[in-house]
Each structure stands twice: as structure tokens, then as C-alpha cells.
């Protein structure tokens, strides 16, 4: 097991012995994980293993109950200001996109720009269009989200996060709700994003994507980090039996 980390000034996310319960069910069991600036971490594991809970704790959509989480120097606790400061650094992409269905694509982006970052409307729209162009969806900017395909919606969701200029991006199974032919258009955007040096934590089962961009692979089961290694080692000679079994199952076809 290689779960111990080194901490230095480049550490942007630092989880120490984080535990969380849902009722009697322990979703996270003393999880420790450090992420460096620019590092790309891919988390995988069977369903119910706690991987989504883990990244949801990182921007405090879930509150952890034991241990500490520090994001860029801000400890996540009941102090709202710390949470706000941390969320300023973090963007998040969800499995089900969670676009605002009553707002146009453009308005989905400008809402945060005008209300949180206090840009004027015209300026916000210019910025929003830049990001929509970046994910190749600028021509759809006046449509409503449900007039777009799933892949297009997810790209809008990525643009919505990016336009807030986060330093860290969290992806919670971004392609799991997509039809197979739309997965690659989203992964392409994510690969491009990785090439810009963005710090990324992705929960995904897309192992081709993981091989291509991951610096670190994390395998979770029963709320624990079972294995943490570089991709070459992870895919060729995983240490734990559970991880071997899991990889065998998902790479079977």
C-alpha cells in the first residue's frame, strides 16, 4: 500500500484521516490523500465504495465528520467563509450535468459571473462566450439545456465551471449518464483541459482516459483508499487483490 503522501507548498488539497457516515453506513473510512498543484488524479472503484462521497467532501457538498480537509490553505469546517474560499478555487462537474433548465446555455454561465464574480452583463456574456467556444458549443448559446444532447449539456456544464476560473476541477462520473457515442466529445474536452495543467480529480471508469491523462490512480473500496499508484504500475501490476479483480472485471470487454 502506498497511501502515504508528502506535503509541500504545492499541495492544494490535503485530506487527513477523513471519515463520514450515512446513518450506520460508513461511506469514508480514514481516507488520506494529498493532491499537488497540476496533478491529475483518477479515482475508481466499485459502486458504493465512497469515491463520489470523497470528491463531494472536497467542496463540502457533503460534510465530513472526522479528520481534516484543507483546500489551498482553507480548512473545510463550519466556518462558512472557509467553505466559500475553498469553493472559489474549485469547479465541479456532475454526473447528471445539473444545468439550470429554465436558463439558456449562456445564462447558465453568466449567472455565476454576474452574481458571484460581479461582472457587468455584457462583460459576463463575452467571457461566457469564450468558454462556450472553448468547448465548441458557442452556436447553441441561446438554446435551453434540454434542447441539447447529453454530451453537449455536459460540455456546457464544464464551461459553466471553468468560467469561474477555478484552480481545481472535480469530475463526478462525468460520462456515466451519457450515450456511448457522446462520451468521447466530453472526454476530449477533459483531455484538452488536462493539457492546460489544470489540477483535476476525476471519478470515472473510463480507463482509456485514465491511462492518457492520470498522474495518479486511486482505487477505493468500502470507503477506504486501497491503492494509490502511478498509472503504469496501476494497470500492469496492481498490488491488492481487490484492485486486480476490479480491473479484470471492467477491462474484460
Amino acid at each position: 500500500m502506498n497511501t502515504q503522501n508528502t506535503t509541500d507548498k504545492n499541495t492544494v488539497i490535503q485530506l487527513t484521516d477523513v471519515s463520514k457516515w450515512f446513518g450506520d453506513f460508513q461511506a469514508l473510512d480514514t481516507v488520506s490523500l494529498n493532491v499537488q498543484l497540476g496533478e491529475r488524479v483518477v479515482i475508481c472503484g466499485p459502486s458504493g465504495s465512497g469515491k463520489s462521497t470523497l470528491i463531494r467532501c472536497i467542496n463540502r457538498l457533503e460534510a465530513h465528520e472526522k479528520g481534516t480537509i484543507i483546500v489551498n490553505g482553507h480548512e473545510l469546517n463550519n466556518d462558512k467563509n472557509n467553505v466559500i474560499a475553498a469553493r472559489n478555487e474549485i469547479g465541479m462537474v456532475f454526473q447528471h450535468f445539473n444545468l439550470f433548465p429554465h436558463l439558456s446555455v449562456l445564462e447558465n454561465l453568466t449567472l455565476g459571473l454576474t452574481r458571484v464574480r460581479k461582472f457587468q452583463k455584457t462583460e459576463a456574456e463575452q467571457i461566457a462566450m469564450q468558454y462556450l467556444e472553448r468547448v465548441n458549443i458557442a452556436e447553441q448559446s441561446h438554446k435551453l439545456p434540454n434542447q441539447l444532447s447529453g454530451g453537449q449539456q455536459q460540455r456546457v456544464a464544464i464551461a459553466r465551471s471553468l468560467c469561474m476560473e477555478p484552480r481545481i476541477m472535480l469530475f463526478d462520473e462525468p460520462t456515466s449518464a451519457l450515450d456511448p457515442e457522446m462520451i468521447s466529445e466530453v472526454l476530449d474536452v477533459m483531455v484538452e483541459l488536462a493539457e492546460t495543467g489544470m489540477t483535476m480529480i476525476c471519478v470515472t471508469h473510463e480507463m482509456g482516459f485514465a491511462r492518457k491523462v492520470a498522474d495518479t490512480m486511486v482505487f477505493m473500496d468500502t470507503g477506504q483508499i486501497i491503492e494509490r499508484s502511478a498509472p503504469e504500475q496501476f494497470f500492469t501490476e496492481p498490488e491488492s487483490q481487490r484492485c486486480q479483480q476490479f480491473l479484470k472485471q471492467i477491462l474484460q470487454h
Binding site: 466559500i84 465541479m92 439550470f100 465551471s161
Partner: peptide
């Protein structure tokens, strides 16, 4: 209204009154 709507607006740091006003209520009233 789906919980994901609130989570999305939290993730872009929209505060609670803004979340209600711009995200939740327009959908709920409809």
C-alpha cells in the same frame, strides 16, 4: 426541485438568497 440544482449553484458559490431567487424559485413557481 432536484437536489442537484442546489449543489450546482453551491459549486459556483452562489449564496443562499441568490440560489433561491435565480435557481430554485423560478422552477418551483412554474
Amino acid at each position: 426541485i432536484d437536489k442537484g440544482q442546489t449543489e450546482a449553484s453551491h459549486s459556483i458559490n452562489l449564496n443562499y438568497p441568490d440560489t433561491l431567487r435565480f435557481v430554485i424559485l423560478p422552477q418551483a413557481i412554474r
